[in-house]
């Protein structure tokens, strides 16, 4: 493999393998699948590690990160757009994650359109809920939190530290009700 195909040259193959294995386990438990093309997946996982090292979080390898966490919150892997793209195209934007059919090899994946809004104010972490959406919420004993990555809902004082379904971190939750 040439240097060009190997982002994060100082990351060892063993470290990459370890993260691939961990992601396999995590994702399968949540009903997600990594791309069965092992070489393809290894390059992307190496890229996630490179981004972890330079930004401090695993920014999406196929998008230009700003390098500031709040700006990039919607594109920290798994991104806010993954599930919709899996549904529509059978793969996420990078094709690190694929649908069950694609994981079984019944569907091929390709380069898909970008779903992330171009305008900053339209991105999920900045978008203000419309006033009408906030109205008429019945009194609840607990606030309801929604995971912006997978849509998991829970009613408790605080969102969980890690989403039990997709493993997104606490800062990916929004107040739903």
């Amino acid at each position: 493999m040439s240097e060009q195909d190997r982002p994060g040259g100082d990351i060892t193959e063993e470290q990459v393998e370890a993260l691939v294995a961990r992601l396999h386990k995590q994702t399968q438990a949540g009903g997600y699948y990594l791309n069965p093309d092992e070489e393809f997946t290894r390059i992307l996982v190496r890229s996630l590690m490179k981004n972890q090292a330079r930004y401090g979080y695993q920014a999406c390898p196929c998008r230009l990160a700003a390098g500031e966490k709040l700006e990039d919150l919607d594109i920290i892997c798994p991104c806010d757009y993954r599930d919709a793209d899996l549904e529509r195209y059978g793969a996420c934007y990078c094709a690190l994650y694929v649908s069950a059919a694609a994981a079984r090899g019944e569907r091929t994946v390709s380069s898909i359109p970008e779903r992330r809004p171009r305008a900053r104010q339209d991105r999920p972490q900045f978008k203000q809920p419309a006033a009408t959406e906030q109205a008429a919420v019945p009194a609840l004993p607990y606030p309801v939190w929604r995971c912006r990555v997978c849509g998991y809902l829970c009613a408790r004082e605080e969102p969980p530290g890690v989403c039990p379904v997709c493993k997104a971190k606490k800062d990916r939750f929004e107040r739903f009700m």
């Binding site: 060009q4 195909d5 982002p7 994060g8 393809f40 390059i43 992307l44 890229s47 490179k50 981004n51 390898p61 196929c62 998008r63 230009l64 990078c94 094709a95 380069s111």
Partner: peptide
């Protein structure tokens, strides 16, 4: 391109 993106790598190739 981006150094980290597989699709970019495919176009380079």
């Amino acid at each position: 391109a981006l150094s980290t993106c597989v699709w970019c790598g495919k176009v380079k190739k």
